[in-house]
Amino acid sequence: MKMPPSPPANNTVDGARRRLLAGAAAIATLSLAPGVVLITAAEAKAPTGPASAKVRWGLLVDSAKCGDGCDVCVDACRTENGWTGHGRPRTDPQWIRMVSLREPAGGASWTLPMMCQHCRFPPCVDVCPTGASFRRADGIVLVDKHICIGCRYCMMACPYNARSFVHEDVAEQRPHAPRGKGTVESCTLCVHRIDAGGIPACVEACGRAGGGALTFGDLNDPDSEIARRAAAYAAVRVRADLGLDPAVRYHIPGRAAKR
């Protein structure tokens, strides 16, 4: 028989306390009635966060489902976060790009999206002189553009070439994705969506209009779809030899699963 999972021991006290407090609040509200209704915190949307270190957000790319020539994820990211090029590939910002791989021996080829890998030990954070590059508690690596001085050390340090420097004036930014000349930027894993309980735009778009090759979820939760799939596929970390433990994992079809 399957038992319902018992709540973690350290949560039970909190839970009981919360219920007690909720009860107390209800009694207080009742005693204030009739006629008089105090609306303060209830009306305003309750703040969310802070990001929890219990979760580690990650992406799994199943390149068996990643279609050749499809760039729906890139398109979705561009629209969601408002980064556009000026037709100058050397300096245009790029948060996500499609990469084609070819096995020289057999001739087999794959395409994969490549973006910030949200490393557990991010070299971009190590080298940042101002502390603008940082790793959030839930594993998302971000740039605090308020204090980024645009030195581009992080771009040098990143082995995935994931970061871009904004060389030109920016207009028409998205409200949730501020971008400005003179700062470095990269994939945020759509942190604004995650904080609202959603999934990244690329994952949504790939599921809707692409091959459904992207899975988003909590790598720390062994029951999550991403964790189960990553284990089943023995998904690889790109440049695993560097020991950075990226949160973006790749499934390459036909590749022997090594345990």
Binding site: K45, P47, T48, G49, P50, A51, A137, D138, V191
Partner: peptide, 21 residues
């Protein structure tokens, strides 16, 4: 508040540039 939002992911507090706009 911006530091708390950017660094800790606390959103929906009282002050917000979006709300100003």
């Amino acid at each position: 508040q911006r530091d708390e939002t950017v660094r800790q992911g606390i959103r929906g507090r009282k002050y917000s540039l979006k709300e100003c706009v």
